[in-house]
Amino acid sequence: MALEKAVIHNLDTNEDVGVLFNPKEYIIEKRTPWKEQEIQGLDSPAVEFTLGERKRLSMELFFDTSEEKSDVRAFTDKIEELMLVNADQHRPPLLLFTWGNLQFRCVLEDLVQRFTMFLNDGTPVRAILKVLFKEYSSAASQIKEKPRHSSDHTKRIILQEGESLSSLSAREYEDPAQWRVIADANGIDDPMNVEVGTPLRLPPLY
Rank of each mutant, 00 (worst) to 15 (best):
K130W: 04
I39T: 12
R148F: 00
Y26C: 00
A127I: 11
V19H: 02
A46Q: 11
V112A: 12
A74H: 11
A185F: 07
I143A: 14
I8M: 06
I158H: 06
D43Q: 14
Q40T: 01
S58A: 10
L129A: 13
W179R: 05
E81Y: 11
W34P: 01
M1F: 07
S138K: 05
R156Q: 13
V47A: 12
H149I: 03
Q160H: 05
T116Y: 10
R114I: 06
A183K: 02
N22A: 02
V7L: 10
C106H: 02
D189H: 11
L132K: 15
N10S: 10
G197E: 05
N14T: 07
H153V: 14
A170V: 07
A127W: 06
K55E: 14
D88C: 01
D71G: 04
V181T: 15
E29C: 01
L96H: 08
V194L: 09
H9N: 03
S169V: 13
K35R: 15
K55T: 01
V19G: 03
V72K: 04
R105E: 09
S66E: 14
D189T: 15
L96T: 06
K30A: 11
T76L: 09
V7I: 15
N14H: 09
L20Q: 15
E145H: 04
R31I: 05
P191Q: 09
E172G: 01
H90F: 14
F97Y: 15
N120I: 06
V194N: 11
T198Q: 10
F62I: 08
K155Y: 02
T65N: 08
L102T: 12
D88N: 08
T198M: 12
D121K: 08
A139M: 09
L57I: 03
F75L: 14
T13C: 06
G18V: 12
P204H: 02
L84R: 13
H9W: 11
S151I: 05
I79F: 00
F97C: 03
L95W: 06
M117D: 13
S164E: 09
E38W: 02
E163M: 12
P203V: 04
L200K: 03
Q89G: 02
L129Q: 09
S137N: 08
L42A: 13
Y173P: 09
V112E: 14
K5S: 11
R105A: 00
L51W: 10
E145C: 01
V17N: 03
L57G: 02
F104Y: 11
G187Q: 14
S137F: 00
